[in-house]
Design a protein around this nucleic acid. Structure first.
Lengths: 154, 154
DNA sequence: TATTGTTATACTCTATAACTATA
DNA sequence: TATAGTTATAGAGTATAACAATA
């Protein structure tokens, strides 16, 4: 349905438009692919953050994501309801919660990552290995990140 | 505020994530930059379509965009209210409307394109000319488009 | 006084289905 | 019967402001 046909010229010659179109396309496809797991993209982002930095507070999660504070409450509520994360008392400040993944959360994250790889594989099909490397380098630079950290995963 | 700091690792090593992040970033910035003109991104897309193919019907606009039929009604209502486009009777089928830009619509489109160029320039600042060309080629291929049509505009 | 998390609320965007007028 | 456009409506998703507990 959506994003099934390439974008129309002359916009398709504009690099900014191409960036937006391709980006929204993969975001959309990933969102769809995540549905069977009972997750949305925001959940995936938070699971990743918690995996690499266990015990983050909600404010810290907000600062590291595009999710605002009030929406974060809802996202964490859902992750807790699904048994994937839990709010624990913060050792030093009773106002804060230290948020951690559960074992189920780590398993679900592993599943979701497989989905992400599959979607990327589908979307990136038109590009060869060399081209994908080029693209990653360019996109990292565009995002304000330094050069590849020793050839990351996908 | 939003998209002001680079995305966190390890997601930032994933090419799919980078694509989505950069794409959403430029879409967001463009949306903000368009606000002073009284337009949103959808309006810009439709203005472009009408500029290159005057007289398209609403269904044809729907088919060439990511806007569904009922939302298209609202977009065209707004464009007409702003005096930027007009629905004319279709010569061959009284059910259809042939949608055309007005002179003001063409002027507004020219302004909006300048805004688009400025935003792209800001976002693409980290890349040199050679790198931008590489990126455009890769993104066109990714979008399922054939090779560059004789070095397009931006 | 300021901050953390929360709630209530409003706002935008999009999608669905039903309706009309024409074909 | 089918299609083009429209309307009404509902559903996500997100943002804003006010609040309670704690610092």
């Amino acid at each position: 349905m959506k994003f099934d046909s390439p974008p129309p010229e002359p916009l398709a010659s504009a690099i900014g438009f191409l960036l937006a179109w391709n980006g929204q396309r993969i975001a959309y496809r990933f969102g769809e692919a995540l549905r069977p797991l009972g997750l949305r993209r925001h959940h995936f982002g938070v699971l990743n953050l918690l995996d690499s930095r266990p015990g983050l507070t909600q404010q810290e999660l907000v600062a590291r994501s595009l999710i605002d504070a009030s929406s974060m409450v809802g996202v964490l509520d859902e992750l807790e309801r699904l048994g994937l994360a839990e709010r624990r008392p913060h050792p030093a400040d009773r106002r804060k919660h230290a948020v951690h993944l559960t074992a189920a959360g780590r398993r679900k994250l592993a599943q979701a990552r497989k989905v992400a790889v599959a979607v990327a594989e589908e979307i990136l099909a038109p590009l060869g290995e060399r081209e994908r490397d080029e693209l990653r380098v360019l996109l990292r630079k565009l995002a304000g990140l330094e050069a590849d950290p020793a050839h990351g995963p996908r």
